[in-house]
Write a protein that binds this DNA or RNA. Structure first.
Length: 481
RNA sequence: GGCCCGUUCGUCUAUCGGUUAGGACACCAGGUUUUCAACCUGGGAAGAGGGGUUCGACUCCCCUACGGGCUGCCA
């Protein structure tokens, strides 16, 4: 699924050129909801400025990367409606280029060969700890070693990080972040087995792909300082940074499995429409005045990095549902039905029959205004989905007593030739109620039981209109018998 | 441990030195009603704590507390 990586194609970008953003997940599982939001912000920002939104799979960790995970991530993005430009880039496919850059840095003198073994480094740390130091950055003895003293052995390539001064990350979300260089180590960019590390790969890929704005989780904020060393070592322009806070669970702790749904696909299976998810996720950590309910196009028009908050936001299902409810209410009926069928498939529920689909489409106007998610909509649509004989639930059956059944019997003849509109039906039902000396509510209950087999349903008129005269009379006759 | 980031109603947030601190979700009360919703009206609800700076701080600075992140030949 991941195509050949893009080869070097962009000229060095300038900050005034077209916007290029990217989403770069590791394929180690499904698309995390936090990752989905990161992708969303990148998408909104690029699309809102006529720029490009690229997708790169960071699969350099062959141990943990799987093609299934890559497929799951693509599927999640697709469901969310986040379309990317060009081919999906595989980071692993760029090893040679990454190694080439590492050697170039070697040639420039901004990196050096380090012959220290992992064991020696571990020993160094243990010694530091034993000496009472809480922690110390590893200082390779090879940093300034005479090449003549280099042994014939495998070596890693490390950055020659500045020991003095400070590195400043000019971040659009976090502001100016200053990191003292002494806290930065000579990070390894090429392992002793010749493979590149993530720190090198991201920078090379972002540069080669022409990425102008790096919008990612703030767990990378400190990494940005390290990565900036590579840009400097290669004389490459540094992209605009925007480190966004992570999403937390309702309890304020980092979102994890015990909070329930962490994967985007789970939200589809729970029956939330993509447009509602996008709206909710956009507002989670970003705001533009009092703007609450909006389409993605509207969001793109005003989305800015400056509008992103600095504190982690908590997931609130109540608000998610409310937001989705607004979107469901205004969605096009056919589109809604289509997405609902996608939900059915995602939730491994039986597909709709042609008759059910037709009735659902007809009932959509009355159903969509009162549903916050698809399960709820389907619940309200029950009357349209069932087929005769209608089996009344216990609570509904109670309203089908002898008297009520008698009333229903007198009703059907009058429906026989009535024109099938609410305007005609309403006086007929009101008349029946009046003749029997009962309020309309008393008549509605047995009607609900007969038409839907339930005590909670949409309006009786709406149900009659959707299932039609023939089916209405048939259901009433069966219930009255 | 060190370094970095964060902290406004229960939740998401507005405010970018001067406001009765606004909106949304949720909650409570009332209204409407054909059940459930939806809808309408009203209500309670916030600047973590302590120091500064200033005529004036939610807003700027410092400290503390709490939360998060980074600190790997993981990404």
């Amino acid at each position: 699924m991941v195509s050949e990586r893009l080869t070097r194609l962009m000229s060095p970008q300038t900050t005034s050129g077209p916007v290029v953003t990217r989403f770069a997940p590791s394929p180690t599982g499904f698309l995390h909801i936090g990752g989905g939001r990161t992708a969303l912000f990148n998408w909104l920002f690029a699309r809102g400025r006529g720029g490009k939104f690229l997708l790169r799979i960071e699969d350099t960790d062959r141990e943990r990367s799987t093609p299934e995970a890559t497929a799951a991530i693509l599927k999640g993005l697709t469901w969310l409606g986040l379309d990317w430009d060009g081919d999906v880039v595989s980071q692993a496919a760029g090893r040679d280029r990454h190694a080439e850059v590492a050697h170039e840095m070697l040639a420039r003198g901004t990196a050096y060969k380090c012959f220290s073994t992992p064991e020696e480094i571990a020993a160094f740390r243990a010694a530091q700890e034993a000496a009472g130091a809480s922690y110390a950055v590893f200082q390779s003895p090879w940093r300034d070693a005479d090449p003549a003293s280099h042994p014939q052995a495998p070596y890693a390539i490390r950055m020659k990080a500045p020991r003095l001064g400070e590195t400043i990350i000019d971040d659009k979300v976090q502001g100016r972040v200053t990191i003292r260089n002494e806290t930065l180590d000579d990070m390894i960019v090429l392992r002793s087995d010749g493979t590149p590390t993530y720190m090198l790969a991201v920078v090379v890929d972002d540069h080669d792909m022409g990425v102008t704005h790096v919008i990612r989780g703030d767990d990378h904020l400190n990494n940005a300082a390290r990565q900036q060393m590579v840009y400097a070592a290669m004389d490459w322009p540094v992209p605009v940074w925007a480190h966004i806070p992570l999403i937390h669970g309702p309890d304020g702790k980092k979102l994890s499995k015990r909070h329930g749904a962490t994967g985007v696909e789970e939200y589809q299976a729970m029956g939330y429409p993509a447009a509602g998810m996008r709206n909710y996720l956009t507002r989670l950590g970003w705001a533009h005045g009092d703007m609450e309910i909006f389409t993605s196009a509207e969001a793109m028009a005003v989305f800015s990095l400056e509008g992103i908050g600095r504190a982690p936001a908590r997931l609130d299902f109540k608000k998610l549902e409310s937001t989705c409810g607004h979107h469901i209410a205004v969605m096009d009926d056919a589109a809604l039905l289509h997405e609902l069928e996608g939900y059915l498939a995602a939730a491994a529920k039986p597909a709709l029959t042609p008759l059910q689909r037709a009735r659902l489409l007809q009932a959509m106007p009355v159903l969509k205004e009162r549903s916050k998610n698809f399960p709820e909509l389907l619940e309200k649509a029950s009357f349209a989905l069932i087929s005769r004989p209608v089996v009344a639930e216990p609570k509904a059956a109670e309203s089908l007593d002898t008297v009520s059944r008698g009333i229903l019997k007198t009703l059907t003849p009058r429906l026989q030739h009535a024109s099938w509109t609410k305007e005609t039906l309403e006086p007929i039902l009101n008349g029946i109620a009046a003749e029997n000396g009962i309020g309309f509510g008393k008549l509605a209950a047995p009607l609900r039981a007969a038409l839907a087999g339930r005590s909670v349903t949409p309006s009786v008129f709406d149900m009659m209109l959707v299932i039609g005269r023939e089916e209405t009379i048939a259901r009433l006759d069966e219930a009255a018998a």
